[in-house]
Design a protein around this nucleic acid. Sequence first.
RNA 1: GCCUCGUUAGCUCAACUGGUCAGAGCAUCUGACUCUUAAUCAGAGGGUUCUUGGUUCGAGUCCAAGACGAGGCACCA
Length: 512
Amino acid sequence: MPPVPPAPSDDSSTGPLQSGGIAAGLEKARRDKLRKLTELGLDPWGSRFDGAASIAAVREQGEPLKRPEGEPPADDGPTVRVAGRIMLQRSAGSLVFISLADRSGRIQIMLGKKQVGPENWKVVDCLDLGDLIGVDGRLGYSKTGELTVFASALTFLTKSIETPPDKFHGLVDTELKQRMRYVDLIHGEGVRERFIARSRIVASVRQTLFDRGYLEIEGPTLQDSAGGAAARPFKTHHNALDMGLVLRIALELHLKRLLVGGMERVFELGRVYRNEGVSPRHNPEFTMLEAYEAYGDYVSMMDLTEAIIRDAAKVAGTPPTVQWMGHEIDLSKPFRRVKYDDLLREVVGCDPSDPASIVAAAASRGIDTAGRHPDVIKSELFEATCESTLSAPTFVIDYPAAICPLTKRKAGQPDIAERFELYVAGMELANAYTELNDPDLQEELFRTQLAGLAADESMARMDTDFIRALRHGMPPAGGLGIGIDRLVMLLTQSASIRDVILFPIHRPQTED
RNA sequence: GCCUCGUUAGCUCAACUGGUCAGAGCAUCUGACUCUUAAUCAGAGGGUUCUUGGUUCGAGUCCAAGACGAGGCACCA
């Protein structure tokens, strides 16, 4: 790459993010150094740099070089090569100490004017916090006992022309942390670790399922009608086909088609979209796992759920007992299982089998009961009273059938659906059914609009192709859905879903 | 969509009831320093107090509207 000609001195206002004033001054100092680097014949944007060891590995190499207190440090350490970002810089005249960070950790670099030679020293003058460099040098300990790479050569890898945040506090402003996640990942306390944990959790969920013989599949995210859940979809349009489309709100109906197709154990782990409110527990796009197992039922799904969570907790480094959202949660014990009606009776003190008792209890709590289906009232009563009491991991089982249009009814009890929801710290984490595979009943339920539910909050959306699939014979099956973001919240003790989503939704930043 | 709270230098934060209140640390620049650890020391520069309007002799501070965010509600059966 040919050297860049010196830029005009007023180039500091060209950046898209410049607001003038001091920002321009801070950037100018960095652009001056960038120019100086090119004048030295160096490419300030670097190039391939082979053979760098991870800093964690280098730190391990340094262990045996330690000497007892009082003895002079070993001076025969190996020569190492590392690369990373300058996080801290301390200058003591012609001696510069740098804290260099890579994906695995941090290590101190010492650059001495005498040690690196005059050519390298000119480069040292161009270094800023945030720059990326490569270093070759001997591994040893400084006089104060800090593991240090004593640099003999310096390779400039990339200039940073933006000022990093406060070196001690990092980014604190939640808005900036989320909008500039790249900065938050560099400087935020535990941020990178949290997203590493997320990656491991997702990998673990897949592995737990693979180990049980599941196949991972990919269903359509663009659909002509959104089924499998009650939620408002995002709407879009296909130009060439001139057709309206919606983004999926659940994975369910296509996975079940695959059960019909003989893929007896299938799962999808992917993004779903719901055009609804934002909260510490809701983001419009979020990651869902759904898994279906032929010849299983909701009880087998409980066992699977516990296995998925326990395995994930292991790889995430989650302690057996976690403090989260003001709850102390023991993940090591088998999860409690309690019937929906029993819980209502226990918490509310009403008779769940008596609609009049339910209506009275709901009305006394300000829940609108007029003209609404008894099971809708019951469900609202449950949410208002029971959910927040479920601190320890709890499978709530056997739901009112009317609010479960995709679920098989209990044998001999048509009013009870074989469904569970898993609650932890008052939050819904998972939802599972013994899957309804009777095509005629399914068709009828798709047509049933429960009293008191608006059309767009109902699951009563006919999917004729899905009915046709069921008519070909779907094996009896258990099905499970887990909110992966919420699972990551639990396993990393995060208070907001936005803390575990790299780029949560935001309104556009105002430019002025 | 509704309610409450917040927004001050690149970052992290100050500024009692409206009256030298535009301030500090980090960062930046200049200088000193070959063993520092958020290095230290001396000096310098840096502001549309989110925006617009209003009240007032006087507004970072009070009022109104708007932008963005946080929490709550609604929504999420």
